[in-house]
Amino acid sequence: MQILIIGGTGFIGSSLAARLVAADHTLTLPTRHREHAARLLVLPNLDLVEANVHDPATLAELVHGKDAVINLVGILQGSAERFAQVHVALTERIIAACEVAGVPRYLHMSALGAGIDAPSMYQRSKGLAEARVVASALAWTIFRPSVVFGRDDRFINLFARLQRHVPLVPLACASARFQPVWVEDVSRAFAAALERDALVQQKLDLVGPTVYTLAQLVRLAGQWSGHPRPILPLPDAIARVQACMMALLPNPPLSSDNLDSMKIDNVAPAGFAAVLGWTPTALEAVMPQCLAPDNPAARYRRTVSSRTWKFPPSQ
């Protein structure tokens, strides 16, 4: 298949791209900065192009002739206007371009807890985007993962890095509950949806086999990375002050909207979507090896982290 992956250069997109090229699909991945996705250039049958996907004319060119379009775009922090632009307006533009081009298949990344009446701007914008997809004429499938873990995730790894540098962890929403899902189970689900007609017009929850509190996840991250630290649960009022202070940082790890998202548990009582036909991988089967201080991959990433890659402009 000829497949366009929008938002495909990030953590989940990298896993999905590797899986799809291994299945002999040909991929197009638009990106704002080609050098930021240099690691993907080793994959065969992958065209990495600099493009502004928010431009309707550019989108029309990108979707032309594609057998499937996958939308992985998402942000965790921003203003109401920014969430609306990235999650809702972009989804509308992608849907419109796909309908005009007659794209046979559309896969959409949403989030567990998404809903138009949800507590946070993030969840509400994801819910509005879902509504736009469902109302479209496309052959769609929507995926709703809990937090996604893996070697380069920005969740478990964040807490592991934090505990290398602080004597204790002041933690907002320590009792919030999550059901983390492995990135490879997520990418496998997307790949399966391209092959199975039974998954058309389906919303699928993607979660792991175990529910954890946020405090439990932070404790495990510290333990597995070799830097366990005491955890200090914060009352909501102090957590709000902490989030406001962090908002002043260039890439804040926490926002007030994140706190709003954690007002409801990020779990799926029915578990991993049974229609997919496999049991998801447990957190304990993956992350201890990924976070271990003597992990060769971790040592390599530390060695090359300051290297800057340069490529000629896209033709």
Rank of each mutant, 00 (worst) to 15 (best):
Arg196Val: 02
Leu232Gln: 07
Asp294Ile: 00
Arg188Gly: 05
Leu40Phe: 14
Ala192Gln: 12
Ala221Val: 04
Arg196Leu: 02
Glu184Asn: 11
Asp205Val: 02
Ser255Tyr: 04
Gln2Ala: 08
Val267Ser: 08
Ala172His: 06
Val42Lys: 14
Val218Ile: 03
Trp309Tyr: 14
Ser255Ile: 02
Ala273Cys: 05
Ala198Leu: 06
Pro167His: 05
Thr9Val: 03
Pro30Met: 07
Ala297Val: 12
Pro180Ala: 06
Cys290Asp: 13
Arg82Phe: 06
Arg34Trp: 02
Gly10Arg: 07
Ala22Phe: 01
Pro228Tyr: 01
Pro269Phe: 02
Tyr300Ile: 00
Ala60Trp: 06
Gly102Cys: 09
Met1Thr: 11
Val218Asp: 01
Val49Thr: 15
Ile5Val: 15
Ala89Gly: 00
Glu92Arg: 15
Val69Thr: 10
Met121Lys: 12
Arg240His: 13
Gln223Met: 07
Glu99Pro: 09
Arg34Asn: 02
Pro170Thr: 12
Arg151Lys: 15
His165Leu: 11
Asp185Cys: 08
Met287Leu: 09
Gly208Leu: 05
Gln77Val: 03
Val134Lys: 14
Leu46Arg: 12
Leu43Ile: 02
Trp140Arg: 03
Ile5Gln: 11
Leu168Pro: 06
Gln202Arg: 15
Asp265Leu: 01
Asp47His: 15
Phe311Glu: 04
Ser261Val: 06
Leu107Met: 13
Thr26Ser: 15
Pro313Gln: 06
Met1His: 13
Arg161His: 13
Leu283Glu: 06
His25Lys: 10
Asn157Asp: 14
Ile70Lys: 08
Leu46Asp: 13
Leu27Glu: 10
Pro288Ala: 07
Val133Glu: 09
Pro280Cys: 05
Leu112Phe: 12
Glu130Val: 09
Ile5Ala: 09
Glu61Lys: 14
Ser187Trp: 07
Ala273Phe: 02
Tyr212Asp: 06
Arg301Lys: 09
Ser225Val: 04
His87Ala: 02
His108Thr: 09
Ile75Pro: 09
Met246Ser: 13
Thr210Cys: 04
Ala23Lys: 11
Leu40Pro: 12
Pro233Cys: 04
Leu4Gln: 10
Gly10Lys: 13
Ala17Cys: 08
Asp152Pro: 01
Ile94Lys: 00
Leu112Ala: 08
Leu40Gly: 12
Cys173Val: 00
Val53Met: 10
Glu92Leu: 08
Leu41Ala: 11
Asn295Ser: 12
